[in-house]
């Protein structure tokens, strides 16, 4: 081997980033959202520090509306890898009974996810948090740095981000400030899938097609994951579906598919005509929506 392939380059870059954080941050954490990007990130962390274990815990901000299979998968992975897993739930939100059906997707996401994340970071005093976001996900992300700085109030100021020449990262922060670090910044959705395939990385079975009970709402197929889902005279039907992204089940659209293996999934993705975010109910408002969310501290 003399020349690295593009996936090997991306892998080496992500490992480099993780090691920088491990060496320079006081209390880093890896945000583990249980999706495919998190799966890749976790896998890279195993490689980066081998034979040591990654020198940071995993943290999941649980909105309480995730797919049941995600939660099971999460716990299993943490156990298998013998890593500390912190699960944070916004108790205030729970007490107020916030949920996507009762309060709508925007409020639910804000309280349970955005506020929940801030609470968790404050509670444990983490100064650096790895996230699995990619620049190819959305136009406004294209300018996001790999190291993204947040004020004490967790606000993101697009005008005050640091230049990242070469592979040198300035990780210095004032007390109270924190950094979000995105080691997968330069990966595309296709890279993620190819890497999962090549490296045999375990992912939540929801990504693979299977018969699942769904109802159709405003053109989106929503899986009835538990009995909290209010059915308005609807009868769930079994369909062969899978998910391209995973989040709160009431906010995540399924696609009809028969792709049951990774090559099938990749094939379907390469031939599809819809971008990945299409399945996220939360995004449909406006193009600038992500940016607003980011300024508010949403990941």
């Amino acid at each position: 081997m003399t020349r690295l392939t593009h996936l090997q380059r991306l892998e080496a870059e992500a490992i480099h980033i993780m090691r920088e954080v491990a060496a320079e941050a006081e209390k880093p954490v890896m945000l583990y959202s249980v999706g495919k990007d998190s799966a890749v990130m976790l896998h890279l962390a195993q490689k980066a520090f081998y034979p040591s274990k990654p020198p940071f815990p995993l943290m999941h901000v649980d909105t309480t509306w995730k797919f049941g299979e995600m939660i099971a998968f999460r716990d299993e992975m943490a156990k298998k890898l013998d890593m500390e897993l912190i699960v944070h739930i916004n108790q205030e939100g729970v007490e107020q009974g916030i949920g996507p059906f009762s309060h709508g997707s925007a409020l639910h996401t804000d309280v349970m996810k955005t506020q929940g994340l801030k609470q968790a970071l404050d509670k444990y005093g983490f100064d650096a948090a790895f996230g699995g976001a990619r620049r190819d996900e959305e136009k406004s992300r294209a300018k996001e740095r790999i190291f993204s700085f947040r004020s004490e109030q967790h606000r993101w100021d697009p005008k005050n981000q640091r230049p990242e020449p070469w592979s040198i990262y300035n990780t210095r922060i004032q007390p109270g400030e924190s950094i979000r670090v995105f080691p997968l910044s330069n990966w595309t959705e296709l890279d993620i899938w190819q890497y999962i395939h090549l490296e045999n990385i375990p992912i939540v079975p929801l990504y693979f097609a299977a018969p699942r009970p769904v109802v159709e709402r405003e053109g989106t197929l929503i899986m009835v994951d538990d009995d909290r889902m209010p059915l308005d005279g609807e009868t769930p039907v079994e369909k062969m579906v899978r998910f391209r992204t995973l989040g709160c089940y009431p906010l995540t659209g399924a696609v009809e598919s028969s792709a049951a293996t990774l090559p099938d999934i990749i094939q379907e993705m390469l031939l599809t005509t819809q971008s990945e975010r299409q399945g996220r109910v939360i995004d449909h408002d406006s193009t600038a929506s992500m940016e607003k969310k980011k300024q508010e501290g949403y990941f």
Binding site: L4, H6, Q194, P263, I266, Q267, L270
Partner: peptide, 14 residues
């Protein structure tokens, strides 16, 4: 032949 495609694309450079 998606598998052949994937094989070919594993060796792409950057």
């Amino acid at each position: 032949d998606i598998n052949a495609y994937l094989k070919a694309h594993e060796t792409k450079s950057l």
